[in-house]
Design a binder for these strands. Sequence first.
RNA 1: GCCCCCAUCGUCUAGCGGCCUAGGACGUCGCCCUCUCACGGCGAAAACAGGGGUUCGAGUCCCCUUGGGGGCACCA
Length: 501
Amino acid sequence: MQRFALVHSLAQRRLLVLNGRSKTTSLKGSKPKSTMTIVTRFAPSPTGYLHIGGARTALFNWLYARHTGGTFRLRIEDTDRQRSTPAAIDAIIEGMGWLGLNWDGEVVYQFARAARHAEVAKQLIAQGRAYHCYASPEELEAMREDQRKTGRPLRYDGRWRDRPATDAKPNVPPVVRIKAPQTGETIIHDKVQGDVRFGNDVLDDFILLRSDGTPTYMLSVVVDDHDMGVTHVIRGDDHLTNAARQRQIIDAMGWPVPTYAHLPLMHGEDGQKLSKRHGALGIHEYKDLGYLPEAMRNYLLRLGWSHGDDETISTEQAIEWFNLDSIGRSPARVDFKKLDNLNGHYMRSASDAVLADGTLALLKSKGAAVTDDLQAKLISAMPGLKERAKTLVELANGANFLVAQRPLALDDKAQKLLTPEARVILTGLEAALAATADWSASQLDAATRVFAEQKGLKLGAVAQPLRAALTGQSTSPGIFDVLVVLGRAESLARIADQARG
RNA sequence: GCCCCCAUCGUCUAGCGGCCUAGGACGUCGCCCUCUCACGGCGAAAACAGGGGUUCGAGUCCCCUUGGGGGCACCA
């Protein structure tokens, strides 16, 4: 009841804001704007984490609201008391936060509005647009079974549509069903799918209120969208047929019909329905995999929406460009390779300090010994490091040599590089490097080249063993940068370790 | 079973009747750069699902087939 009141006051406040805005506009003397402020919403049910598909839906709603200067609301559809959990609510809110999709106003909890939903159902009954149905679940299941057997469409046959309550057995609590039109057709004007027509004969009298008096989703969405002033319903394709049903309630109440945009669903890499075997589903998993939120936003945006040949689209640009007309109509498959590429792009343009923080957190979580100067080392190594990483996880792996303790563990490729001959070369190189006056990249570079030339070696023959000794790996940032970041003492010690190994 | 939606390179897509001998991006494969790996640069292979119409002209419009997907709960 508490939340119910809260939501109402919010709706009222929104109206005040609306009035205030139109007044400001007219004062400025600019041409009269449309009085309709756009309101979108993301309405997940808290039965699990924030799904990648849901995240895209949220993103599109958010972008459209931001693009139009409208309002973006978050509503938790928790009317399924069995399956809704507080943990899921937390996960959704956390996921939204990570993705940077901020909503306006308070979160609306649908179940808290159950009384309002029931009130609408009662009003519908009073208007003769809804009725009590006393059929038991078992009875209805038998009806459907019969329909299946005889190959007829599965839908409620309207057995209580015109039957008086006096026909009911005593002590059977009824459900409330909409009295839907049985002839004609319902047309959904969809911004993505175009005009979609449904014969009213295929729409049955669905349930509004369960026998325990709680509202069903079909009723709740319509009432909440109306009360929240939602003007644009942007949601998954799986709700397209629901739109036709919901339209029955909207019409019965005489409410304005929102603009619909049903997004094609996302599929796995094999084109099948997205499921666990396709890899990461929850948005939190993408965070753990080391993806950047801005890369996720860009990637998700391009999955189903396009702006000519543009691929790399910043969030600011997306807000400026986003529209409903450019949403594609066919389902898209997730493509992790492309996400990787995009993430790499955003990593390269991210600030070294931000990336260093992310890397530091990952290194700590892996139990690395974190010394005081690590942060500084990370930042100075970052330009070379971030070129080579597509995710924060790769970045942390690449930075591992900074925290590694002597004597270094060598990976297979590094092991192969450190042949007996290579170790001899390292011995000579150690002396050459130790002799440099100034431990700078340019001096170290010069010294190494001179050394290689004297020995009649190509630079690579010297640099690779050096890399192996310094990092324990066969790949790393530019080797002279590595020398500088590690510092004179540590570098020479690591070289010595391998020269005498 | 009934209803609804979708269909361009492997993937994401541009294309909204003539600009298309179909463009871009990821991925793949070559080459260049180079101390490794990346980044970057250059180049290549790669698609209008099939069949009927409409039209002077169809990837673009219509129909059918096929193939995907969604919905048909006292779930959301």
